[in-house]
Design a protein around this nucleic acid. Structure first.
Lengths: 250, 250
DNA sequence: CGCAAGTTTGACGCTGCTCAATCACTGTGG
DNA sequence: CCACAGTGATTGAGCAGCGTCAAACTTGCG
């Protein structure tokens, strides 16, 4: 069973076995890291690329008044700043929200693989385009949607992304190792208000969330409330046909 | 006098004259476009890259309820979706906020130049990294800053970006062809509240804004209010020394 | 000169924030 | 196995920042 990273790229490109084994090499040496650890610190000039194999992380920035804005969630299969070597310094930090397995790959090694396997290069760029589209959706949500819409949209997004790496179980449940404060800091809300908002969604029977596990009971209704359309999460069809891209929800 | 695009790239790389002339070729055929025109429509699969030579545009998305969230301002020198050819379809639209001169360049032509001149390639990638950093700052602002902080930060950002392409005049004034509604849709506020917020800033003598022209009278104070630090707008030093990157404000 | 678009101002209400207390859960050590 | 501490979840009361609605005014433009 390949890891989340490979499962993710398989959605974006039709990989040969030699391509898969090149990817396996990249991820052959994952490290166990603990919740709260910083992977990249603001101001750093990192020369390695972090690859999430299990567990969750986030990009975030702390403001002067002590508040935190989370800029992205890093899920299993995600990688962190493909093009970071161009940068003079990081303008934000990256930390783990749960215990995780992370492969720390020298930038040059990834670039080597990208040069040898153009299909992988293309898939990785597609994946960063998706990351950007996610960021735009976050902006839209925070800028123009109510709390309940934002939360709904976010839950749809996370469920969909997890589904793409095979982390949603048969019964629809999935791990959601976020505190309500983490969610709040990503949604531009307070944890108190997130609590009330989730309570509303639970009360309507749309979701079940408890003990770091979640389930979207009524995906269509939740998507409608949040104005969620999964298209932006899978913009680059793999070279092969649709069989490689099964429908996500309908 | 080279155009804004070239002035911008010169901040990011030390260009030879043959590099400059390759860039001039790309931008040799600008078209005059009018305010309100759409350059790219959501759902399109564009194969040309839009290059702003004068005037302002924006990326934006319209929501079901009719509201609009602006995702980015395109200023003279900015280009629009270097890597768009990978995408299946655009998840947002691009339109002009003022009359403008736009060069519409086939993606292949730009990629050709990037292959022949690696320094240009690097500079273009740096420029997209800056665009992403701007987007992150917008998210931080909308998520965690008050209206007055957001507006201050945005004005600092715009002034700084214009300065980088030589569009801030000696006396500190610059063109700001935005309606208050445009500003509001970018800040996640309503135009009414933007009006009151600008009035406050004007009242404190921090800015002067009227008739599509603006001036930041007290840059340091405005930056302090907005929590603005220009570092993210110039993350990639040019290969040459600091002389090529004069201080922006202190 | 007159219309259309944008700006400014006021009154009022709601969404989401603050402060604070209580409750539940997890993990740790005895 | 239990007690305890620390973190996170939940709930309540009160409030303020920003939105809504609406009207008057100003500016740009044909």
């Amino acid at each position: 069973m390949p890891n989340a990273f490979i499962r993710k790229l398989r959605r974006l490109a039709d990989l040969t076995s030699s391509e898969v084994s090149a990817l396996l090499d990249l991820t052959s040496n994952p490290q166990a890291r603990r919740r709260g650890e910083e992977l990249v610190r603001e101001g750093d000039r990192p020369d390695t690329i972090q690859l999430m194999l299990s567990g969750w992380g986030c990009r975030y920035k702390l403001l002067d008044d002590g508040s935190r804005q989370i800029l992205a969630f890093l899920l299993p299969g995600d990688l962190c700043d493909l093009h970071v070597s161009l940068l003079d310094h990081m303008d934000h930090s990256v930390a783990l929200l749960s215990n995780a397995e992370v492969a720390s790959v020298p930038a040059g090694e990834i670039h080597g693989v990208m040069e040898r396997f153009r299909k992988i290069e293309r898939a990785l760029w597609c994946s960063t385009l998706v990351d950007e589209a996610i960021l735009r959706q976050w902006l839209i949500g925070i800028g123009r949607r109510s709390a309940i819409e934002r939360a709904s949209h976010r839950l749809c997004e996370l469920r969909c992304r997890l589904e793409l790496v095979g982390l949603v179980e048969r019964n629809g449940e999935f791990d959601l190792p976020l505190s309500q404060e983490d969610l709040a800091d990503s949604l531009g809300l307070t944890s108190v208000h997130v609590n009330r908002t989730l309570a509303k969604l639970k009360g309507q029977g749309l979701i079940e969330v408890a003990q770091r596990r979640a389930k979207v009971s009524q995906p269509e209704r939740l998507a409608e409330i949040g104005g969620f359309d999964a298209a932006y999460l899978r913009p680059c069809a793999p070279a092969s046909k649709d069989a490689a891209r099964p429908p996500l929800h309908g």
